[in-house]
Design a protein around this nucleic acid. Structure first.
Length: 260
DNA sequence: ATGGCGTACACCGTACGA
């Protein structure tokens, strides 16, 4: 089983890329972020033709998340419980395989935060606190939990092309990293780091200043797995190829593979 | 160099992203 995450930066623009990549990678479950589509415009039929069912929570222009899967989604939750938030940034669902094993997946589009000290930064930290409480609750009910998404936090300096330049900046500041660490401390593991310890592997590059060509990137898109799934995680990776395609998203897909 | 590029909505510019 493969579970993946991709910030597509407009599903309307990126549907051809998503279709191409789904055919190549053939993931079982995919969380996508920044769909930027109201629900009545979600391309449900086009994805069904590719073999994927969808659940989604979107809005015009900004944000928007969805889960695509070969199996049907159960117990779908949209939004962060207890958080009164018009921004569509969270969706969760359960998937039960042929043997009756259930896996819970939470897909997040974490707040960017704009700049340390900005009011959006405060919203980011408050949002992460609510998400942490939600994940704790989900973990207590679903030991097989995977939390995926655009976290908008580089976990440590290995995940930053120029740690000195980014030190203390948005996406790298200590309060953000502390918030991510608190979530991991609930009993989750960064699947990429279960298989690769070296730095220099990124999932996002700025459109500006030839960021991709110069590999000026960050690793901010993550697949987190619970203790119960850690031993089953056979591989994890980042698909750089879609970033080379014409008119790409600024993020690439990330994925983790699980054995039975 | 508070730029640069891309998307959306709408207006011929502004908001936002990371």
């Amino acid at each position: 089983m493969q579970i993946a995450s991709w910030n597509v930066n407009s599903l309307n623009v990126r549907l051809p890329h998503l279709s191409e990549w789904l055919g190549q990678r053939q993931p079982d479950i995919v969380g996508i972020q920044e769909t930027k589509l109201e629900d009545d415009r979600f391309p449900e039929d086009a994805l069904l033709e590719l073999g994927y069912r969808s659940v989604f929570s979107g809005q015009k222009t900004y944000n928007g998340v969805a889960l695509l899967s070969r199996l049907s989604a159960q117990d779908v939750q949209t939004g962060v419980p207890g958080l009164d938030d018009p921004q569509r940034r969270a969706i969760a669902a359960s998937y039960v395989d042929a043997s009756g094993t259930s896996t819970r997946v939470i897909n997040l589009y974490v707040v960017n935060g704009k700049a340390v000290g900005d009011e959006k930064y405060d919203y980011k930290l408050r949002w992460l606190e609510a998400v942490q409480a939600w994940i704790a609750d989900e973990l207590s009910r679903h030991p097989r939990l995977v939390v995926i998404g655009d976290f908008n936090i580089a976990p440590d300096d290995r995940d930053v092309h120029d740690p000195a330049a980014w030190a203390g900046e948005i996406l790298c500041s200590e309060p953000e990293r502390d918030a991510l660490r608190s979530i991991l401390d609930l009993g989750l593991h960064d699947s990429f780091r279960l298989h690769c310890a070296e730095g220099g592997h990124f999932s996002w590059w700025d459109y500006r200043a030839a960021g991709f060509r110069r590999n000026l990137g960050l690793r901010i898109d993550l697949v987190l797995v619970s203790d119960a799934l850690r031993g089953a995680c056979r591989a994890a990776g980042i698909d750089r190829e879609p970033r080379t395609w014409e008119r790409p998203s600024d993020h690439t897909p990330v994925w983790a593979e699980f054995g039975s």
